[in-house]
Amino acid sequence: MINFNEFWTKKTLIGLGLGQFLSLLITSTGFTSSELSKRGINAPTSQSFLNYVFLAIIYGSIMLYRKKALKAKWYYYIPLGLVDVEGNFLVVKAYQYTSLTSVMLLDCWSIPSVMVLTWIFLKTKYRFRKIVGVLVCVAGLVVVIFSDVHAGDRAGGSNPLKGDALVIAGATLYAISNVSEEFLVKNADRVELLAMLGLFGAIISAIQISILERSELKSINWSAGAALPFVGFAVAMFLFYSLVPILLKSNGSTMLNLSLLTSDMWSVLIRVFAYNEKG
């Protein structure tokens, strides 16, 4: 039998609450990305760039003030920054080809990916019930992909199959990033992690923008309608990145990714109350 006194611990309750706030934040980034896509703005790396700059400036300033040596080798953060930037790039790019609902559902691929990676590299053990739950999750994702492939209309996007593939690739990179962050935040330091991730994320993003998105940025008509989703995305991402290491340290990356499953629920609530759409 399940011991509910052990399950509903203070640590678990805080983790659940924080997880739901993170889920709401990630839903907000989905809506801002979808809004930019509707406006014909195709600059996925540029969307994330401002977040990395915020992280580098704010947490880098804290690091300089503390004057402490790095607990992890600085070059460990280069591949982490690369994986994180490309994960964001692929998922944001997917909004141009498939629907918001498909992106949020398929993003759940990070859950089985995280479980496999934590089992291999962090030696995390999972009970049979959790494994069965993940298999059900994977089966649901396969159904979503097939429904996109065989959909009679393409109102949800110009190329749903391509969008789905981008989300799955991005979710896999998210999983690698989450597990790496869990390891670093438990063995190094949260402020150090965010500052270095912000620094290398900003550098990698700037290089990628100069190669892939320079002409796109020049062609954008920078009205309030275009600028506000950019800023909203950056603020939501900054809060998300700032709080993720706290949940990773206390409850682990599996709890994080399970919490993000409720992003679909928040998406429906936002559509109903903010956009007056029917659920």
Rank of each mutant, 00 (worst) to 15 (best):
Q208I: 02
V185C: 12
E216H: 06
V185W: 00
L228Q: 06
S219R: 08
A195P: 06
L212E: 04
M237I: 05
F200D: 05
A175K: 06
G198S: 08
I207P: 01
A224G: 07
L228A: 15
W222H: 03
F238N: 01
G201K: 06
E182P: 03
L184M: 13
D189K: 04
L239Q: 05
A224S: 12
V231I: 12
I220H: 06
Y241C: 12
S223P: 03
S215L: 11
R190G: 04
N221H: 03
G198F: 03
V179G: 08
G225D: 13
L184G: 11
L212G: 02
V191H: 01
E216S: 15
I209K: 01
A226Q: 02
I211G: 08
L239K: 01
G198Q: 01
V185L: 08
N178V: 01
F200L: 06
F230W: 07
I203H: 00
L228T: 07
L199D: 07
D189N: 14
L217E: 00
E216Y: 04
S215Q: 09
G201Q: 03
A224C: 04
A234Y: 00
G225L: 11
W222I: 09
S250I: 03
M237N: 13
I207S: 12
S215D: 15
V179F: 09
A188S: 15
G225H: 08
I204K: 01
G252H: 00
V191M: 09
